[in-house]
Design a protein around this nucleic acid. Structure first.
Length: 658
RNA sequence: GCGCCCGUAGCUCAGCUGGAUAGAGCGACUGGCUUCGAACCAGUAGGCCGGGGGUUCGAGUCCCUCCGGGCGCACCA
């Protein structure tokens, strides 16, 4: 509902409706009319290809139909004219004065009506056993941007970051502390306070993986540790909580550097202790979604039949493909727990966590973490109407099984509303591996990219990359503003670095593999976040220059009549600039529909390009014609607002200067 | 073996439910700062959209097939 207020959308709909009505009246055909953007600006603003679709049904030349329609459709408010082009396109030209005047008065119409339905977006989900790396950054930035997109169009969103604090990965670091390092919980507490703990664990985890490879018998330690962690008691369990809590704090700090915040941290330990799984298990058995296998390789396990999650063309059921949910020793697999968690997200489990406040961000937002101790005064979480799981595409098989679980339980609606928001991995370019001193095999050298591996400690740490970006940005800022105090320069440099990083992770579509390359990520020219920020800063600079000259910003609504706007927009360059700038909300909405944050990034870049050409072509403050100057100033403020709005959706700040 | 993803300019990538002359950025080459700061702008060169079939008024986009690359397919998480 809210986006019909956006001018471009409104006109598109108006045109589509008018044509649909005419087609109904003339030919008795009832179908929605498509509109599209013409390839070239010279063709007008909105193209209607309806004549092509009709040509077949009516057995009539497209051009003849187009002629009849465009003559018959009559006057549409906001439309200046319709032309026939090619062999049947109807190109619509907007009434520029009408459009400009509408935009000028539109501003306070951007009210957000928040929907009652809650959307849950789960992202980040990093194993709390070591520092975050660039792959995790893609997940978090993608997830956070999608959240911002949803909120921008008025949706109510809850951000969850699932913490697997009882898994093998945490256990391995605990094993390393206890057996390799001989550390007590007190020792580790000391390390947490005095060292870069997430980095320390990064190395320790890699060491432990190596140790297992050389000493397979050490896997017994892992088994015992997992057991201890699961029980929730004793020094080993205490150590595990110390490690995972400290690492979670480190991850949240890293993500906060990127303007990423969360609402709630559901933790695996509570899923265990509050017996979420037991509840889900009963449901799955009761509704016959899983069965007890009595023969074959899965003998003694509770399994989900392959037919539930695989579409096989031939109906011969392959028992080998079934998915084990409960092992023969009675323990539950990862997918099983995930089904329980997914049920909870929709409020279908019949159980809930307790929550304690984990952290309050400087802006006042609170993050809550699950706990098994009864608490009062926490806000409600879960019970989403729609759930997006931001998880890389390698897990699509498991995600399919989880959704199949919902479906098998009879929760068809919720299965439909479960979205695996998948994306491809971030790998390393061979060049970057060499730069980092990583040794590559002959085979790897030939590959276009090399997969990162936490086990091997192979990868780029998120904070290292951010630091590197900030230092580079600081050099650039310093070269332009030598006289400014260091903290100020650093603040600006940080905003630039984050802008560059977020944009870099967002400009690729979700299913293209990013071969991470330092040279590309550190680039501040061309299609980058920095370019977009620069445009916004320049727009502000114009307005700053004006006040510096002792001039005030005109009252645009009073001074710019529709006639004045029509006169100014007769200049094709200004019209194109305004048109591009007016499409921000349409771009965001389309990106939400297609689930593709890169569309917003690309629009932001186009917007900045449009501003940069405008900036080059029209000196604003020195303009002598009063009406023109007023118009140029308005366009500048409009650009500035749209740039800031779009960058905000991307989670990128506009620096005070650059 | 089965499933998913990718193949578009030298490189990195866009291309919305099939639509007009396939677009950006980087790199290369030409120009433009006594400035609302050039982290910019204007321009040039560069394409059998992996190959082959098909569907139709129309295919980079849909279907089939082949080739090349990646990732999954655990009683790991």
């Amino acid at each position: 509902m809210p986006y019909w207020f956006f001018m471009f959308h409104l006109l598109e709909k108006r045109i589509a409706d008018a044509f649909a009505a005419k087609i109904g009246a003339l030919y008795g055909v009832n179908a929605p009319v498509q509109t599209e953007q013409p390839k070239q600006a010279a063709f007008g603003e909105i193209a209607v290809p309806a004549a092509f679709q009709l040509a077949r049904q009516l057995k009539k030349a497209p051009k003849a139909i187009a002629t009849e329609l465009s003559n018959g459709v009559g006057a549409i408010e906001g439309v200046a004219g319709i032309e026939i082009a090619g062999n049947g396109y109807m190109n619509v030209r907007l009434d520029r004065g009408f459009y400009g005047a509408a935009l000028l008065s539109e501003r306070e119409m951007r009210e957000t009506c928040i929907e009652a339905e809650k959307i849950i977006v789960e992202h980040t989900n990093i194993n709390p056993n070591k520092a975050a790396h660039i792959g995790h950054l893609r997940n978090a930035i993608l997830g956070d941007t999608f959240v911002r997109m949803l909120r921008a169009i008025g949706r109510r969103v809850e951000v969850q970051n699932y913490i697997d604090n009882t898994g093998v990965q945490v256990a391995d670091v605990v094993v390393a502390f206890e057996h390799l390092e001989k550390k007590s919980p007190t020792d580790v507490k000391g390390l947490i306070e005095t060292t870069r703990f997430d980095y320390l664990c990064w190395d320790l985890y890699a060491r432990m993986s190596g140790y297992y490879a050389d000493h397979p018998e050490a896997l017994e330690w892992r088994k015992a540790t997992l057991h201890a962690i699961e029980s929730g008691e004793g020094a080993t369990s205490e150590l595990a909580h110390l490690v995972s809590d400290a690492i979670v704090r480190a991850h949240l700090a890293t993500m906060y550097r990127l303007n990423i915040e969360y609402d709630v941290l559901p933790r695996e330990s509570e899923i265990l202790h509050l017996k979420f799984w037991a509840q889900a298990f009963e449901l799955l058995k009761e509704r016959k979604a899983i069965y007890f296998e009595t023969e074959g390789k899965n003998k003694g396990c509770w399994v989900m039949p392959a037919s539930a999650f695989k579409e096989s063309s031939d109906d011969q059921e392959n028992v080998e493909d079934s998915k084990v949910i409960v092992r023969s020793n009675g323990t539950v697999t990862y997918v099983g727990k995930d089904i329980a968690y997914q049920l909870w997200k929709f409020g279908l489990l019949g159980k809930d966590f307790y929550y304690r406040k984990w952290h309050t961000y400087p802006d006042g937002r609170e993050v809550w973490a699950s706990t098994s101790e009864p608490q009062t005064g926490s806000p409600p979480f879960g019970r989403g109407a729609r759930v997006y799981n931001v998880i890389d595409s390698r897990q699509s098989y498991l995600q399919d099984v989880v959704v199949a679980g919902l479906r098998a339980l009879g929760f068809e609606t919720q299965a439909e509303a479960s979205v695996h928001f998948s994306y491809e991995m971030v790998a390393l370019s061979p060049r970057t591996c060499i730069e980092m001193g990583i040794e590559l095999s002959e085979e790897d050298k030939k590959k276009p990219y090399v997969e990162v591996s936490g086990r091997k400690g192979l990868g780029v740490k998120a904070d290292d990359l951010i630091d590197k970006l900030i230092e580079k940005a600081l050099d650039e800022v310093t070269s332009r503003h030598t006289e400014d105090p260091e903290p100020q320069r650093r603040r600006v440099a940080t905003q630039i670095a984050i802008g560059a990083l977020r944009y870099f992770m967002l400009k690729y579509t979700r299913n293209s593999v990013i071969a991470f390359d330092f040279a590309e990520a550190l680039s501040f020219t061309g299609e980058t976040g920095v370019y977009v920020q620069y445009a916004a800063v320049r727009a502000s600079k114009i307005l700053g220059k004006l006040t510096e000259r002792g001039e005030a910003l005109p009252d645009f609504r009073a001074e710019l009549t529709q006639d004045a706007i029509t006169r100014q927009l007769a200049d094709e360059r200004l019209w194109q600039a305004l048109l591009t700038a007016s499409k921000a909300d349409a771009a965001i909405e389309q990106a939400v529909t297609s689930g593709e944050p890169s569309h917003v990034a690309r629009y932001a870049f186009q917007l900045a390009q449009a501003f940069s050409t405008f900036y080059q072509d029209f000196p604003v403050v020195t303009e002598t014609d009063k009406e023109k100057k007023t118009f140029l100033l308005w366009l500048t403020t409009y650009f500035r607002a749209q740039l800031e709005h779009t960058l905000g959706v991307l989670g990128i700040d506009v620096p005070e200067y650059m």
